[in-house]
């Protein structure tokens, strides 16, 4: 009797082949999403700690060279060799500054660094940089610390919507409400988190290692 009961339960309640397949697909999709987000974050960080910092140091050196040349006090036109050097240094200085600005825009497009502090901070900067006045309302009481990809998805969706609304003239102020109970938010701590825990080696914890103060937003801004 018990045996029959068990058979019946398994037959009626256990996930069928299709449901299992959907679950497997959801898991693998979550893994891909996490890996992509982590890669983008790593690229931005490498740019910041490497190329961007080197360019800033280079621009500073060129700025110093430019000043030293200016302080030589030679009358323009009296020494053509010095004038040429001055011109070259000027161009290199300007070019380096432009490269820094370009690289910053590129890096921000890859992974906005404010996202590392929290979604709201990133959205406030996005709205402040928007050419049209934008209202931002964020009510996310705690960060989805184990699924950072969802924050990047929210951010880039908002950025895209804002860009579209900026290019289409409207009379109303664009609004960016981000509720904490968006559809699908129930899965924030679900399959992705489990998949990540399986995938990530213990020696390199993912963003779940955020310090406590980063799991909420800056109090003065939450007001």
């Amino acid at each position: 009797m018990v045996y029959l009961d068990r058979r019946m339960m398994r037959l009626l309640l256990a996930p069928d082949a299709a449901a299992s397949r959907v679950q497997r697909l959801e898991e693998s999709r979550s893994l891909t999403l996490y890996a992509a987000t982590a890669t983008l974050q790593r690229i931005e960080r490498n740019l910041h700690d490497g190329t961007q910092a080197q360019l800033v140091a280079l621009a500073m050196r060129l700025g110093q060279a430019k000043e030293k040349l200016d302080h030589l006090g030679v009358v323009p036109g009296s020494d053509t060799a010095l004038e040429t050097v001055r011109h070259l240094v000027d161009e290199a200085h300007r070019g380096t500054k432009e490269a820094i600005a370009d690289l910053r825009d590129l890096a921000r497009g890859i992974h906005p660094p404010a996202l590392d502090t929290c979604l709201a901070n990133a959205l406030w900067t996005l709205a402040a940089r928007s050419p049209v006045p934008t209202e931002v309302t964020v009510s996310v009481p705690s960060r989805p610390t184990q699924t950072p990809a969802i924050e990047a998805i929210c951010y880039f969706c908002a950025a895209e919507l804002l860009a579209t609304s900026t290019s289409t003239p409207r009379r109303r102020t664009p609004r960016l409400p981000v509720p904490s109970t968006a559809p699908g938010s129930g899965s924030w701590s679900g399959t992705t988190a489990e998949a990540v825990q399986r995938r990530t080696p213990a020696s390199a914890p993912p963003r779940a290692a955020w310090p406590a103060w980063q799991t909420g937003c800056v109090p003065s801004m939450a007001a």
Binding site: A53, V56, L62, G63, I100, A114, N121, W124, T125, M221
Partner: peptide, 28 residues
């Protein structure tokens, strides 16, 4: 390397004697 609005507001609210610059500015 970046100017973030929340950082600007936090610093600006802190009172006088404060500076917040892009790193680019060391070039000049």
């Amino acid at each position: 390397q970046y100017i973030e609005t929340y950082a600007a507001e936090l610093l600006a609210g802190a009172a006088a004697g404060i500076g917040y610059l892009l790193k680019d500015r060391v070039a000049d």
